[in-house]
Design a protein around this nucleic acid. Sequence first.
DNA 1: ACCATGCATCGACAACCGTCGATGTCTTCT
DNA 2: AGAAGACATCGACGGTTGTCGATGCATGGT
Lengths: 112, 112
Amino acid sequence: MSEPGLACCTPLSGTAMSAEQAEQVAPLLKALADPVRLRLVSLIASSASGEACVCDLNDAFDLTQATISHHLKVLHSAGLLDRDKRGVWVYYAVRPEALRAVATLFTTAVPA
Amino acid sequence: MSEPGLACCTPLSGTAMSAEQAEQVAPLLKALADPVRLRLVSLIASSASGEACVCDLNDAFDLTQATISHHLKVLHSAGLLDRDKRGVWVYYAVRPEALRAVATLFTTAVPA
DNA sequence: ACCATGCATCGACAACCGTCGATGTCTTCT
DNA sequence: AGAAGACATCGACGGTTGTCGATGCATGGT
């Protein structure tokens, strides 16, 4: 599972984006396009320390530990989360560059 | 196929988003999380008139007309595109509010 | 009235996705 | 060494998705 290339991108408007750019950004959006994963990123991003332990994240959902682990893997594989194992616990943190890559897609896209 | 509620949303950071908010925004991202659909929105948004005819969009891709029509339907159903039939042709235009809803998700989310 | 054209819909198919229970691996504590 | 806990992985399942060819449905021109 190699680090995917954190696509930087032209905004949606202006000049149309190339097929290659679309292929690069789509996986990021796909990783975020799930309610559970959105909440995961949100939870991690909004935590005081900027990171969150899997055990805490598990408690926030009515899902199996296996499922949460799967979603975290998807987000990590997409390059949206950093993973840090400390002792028995694993901490995930958001990668600001990744979120920024997605942000630039939309910020300039909207007229007002 | 009813008009889905153009979810407005708290940014990803700050306080964590609720499950309901996640359920509302996820479909928007899911609709955009495809290379073809990203390019479609991009093409439409970047066109001078702010709208594009299906016939033109068809030519921009190496896909069947049925497939393009399907993708446009997905984007329209998600509330991202407006549809306007004029004579034999159908014109699609982006709905800025929808894009803005997604934009607010990320703009405030990124520190710097 | 007929035909050509632009677009939507249908049915089918393979590929993928979200979820689960079970199991594996690694760490720490006793 | 052994047991307990935290997290990842595996295999399986039903549901969804992207794509296609074929067909249907309007509209406009002849």
